[in-house]
Design a protein around this nucleic acid. Structure first.
Lengths: 198, 198
DNA sequence: TGCGCGGGTGAACGAACGTTCACTTTTGGA
DNA sequence: TCCAAAAGTGAACGTTCGTTCACCCGCGCA
């Protein structure tokens, strides 16, 4: 048995409905509304169902005892990496891994922020205009890191390089020029991830 | 008077507290809890406060009448035009500080899964080897969508195109060739987002 | 075949919810 | 400075909430 998954299929199906409801409404419905949503006929059944989900960290309680999403509420199935060989295995089979996007991208929440990307200077590194980068704020970085730097009081995203004894900011797009900053330049943070919506 | 902003400063301050609470708990607190949180002494004051916020689309009601964030709930508190001039502030996108990345990328959790990308065939679209794409599973897509298709029992990510009366799968990399599928091809899902870790 | 257990039903209950009423305090414009 | 509108107080009210109790059903296992 997949020991990651002690909650039964029925509950997983219902959890999926809760997730959809939450994605739209950004709240967990009340017990009586869940009755309709999940097609159950007694609030007591909901009570037990909710208790099961709480036990497995899919749901949790706010300070005022309202029902809120738990740690695992935002888990998503990750398809197997063995995809490119013949018989593919779409996710949802047994032993499928579940991951949360936020946990993958954010390691140190307190020093992490999201910055929208303007311009194409990192196009060849797969960072396009309109993307969002996840930045860990800190003043130091290694050569080769993609960094957010402040040059002339402006943000800019570039790869950190070195030339002789001097740091330079290298774009990933031939149409842009390498920046050889004067004194007034500093590192705002290091890009640790990026994402994009279509 | 700034006609964008009919709600008074006090309310904006309180709204900020609600946003902070929401960022942590992912729910709007009950009226009595709001009394503590906002340091008010009667639930009636909350009623009126909430009515004001609803009027201006900061709050809304779910199908079961629960209080949920409205359209403007995730707005940036203060739009600072002074960003690109001197004293900048780290410009984030719309309310990114109050919404998780997951919530930005996933619209229909029950049909969404994550698929790791293998290969460079979509390089020019900013999807690199090792990236993860967020896929909404469905059998139909529009021309121009980036889709996950199944060709010869293999996953492949391409842009959906049309040639005469026939669908084709167009890579975003000159080194790869457009696929003109025979009978055995179907759409597994549509790519609605992607992310990458460094 | 019978039995136990986990999940579901239905009704009843107290507590908490959000609304309402009458009233007071604060605020901002004439 | 005064006054009217807006915001806040405090108590009371009916509603809805989530919990609880007793019971039933269906499946798996001995």
């Amino acid at each position: 048995m997949a020991d990651t998954d002690q909650v039964y299929k029925k509950d997983i199906l219902r959890l999926a409905q809760l997730r959809d409801y939450f994605a739209v409404n950004r709240t967990i419905p009340s017990y009586s509304y869940m009755c309709e949503l999940l097609d159950m006929k007694s609030k007591n059944a909901i009570t037990k169902f909710v208790a099961r989900l709480k036990l497995h960290d899919f749901l949790d309680a706010a300070p005022d005892n309202k029902l809120i999403p738990g740690k695992r509420f935002f888990e998503r199935p990750l398809a197997n990496a063995s995809v490119q060989a013949g018989a593919f295995t779409p996710a949802m089979g047994e032993g499928t891994e579940y991951v949360t996007i936020d946990e993958q991208l954010v390691r140190k929440p307190s020093v992490t922020e999201l910055i929208p990307v303007v311009g194409d200077s990192m196009k060849d590194a797969g960072i396009l205009d309109g993307d969002t980068v996840i930045v860990e704020k800190r003043a130091s970085a290694n050569v080769g890191d993609i960094v957010v730097a402040i040059v002339d009081d402006r943000f800019t995203i570039k790869t950190l390089g070195k030339e002789k004894d001097r740091f330079i900011l290298v774009p990933a797009n031939k149409a842009f020029e390498t920046i050889r900053p004067g004194k007034e330049a500093s590192i705002y943070g290091v890009v640790v991830g990026s994402f994009r919506r279509y």
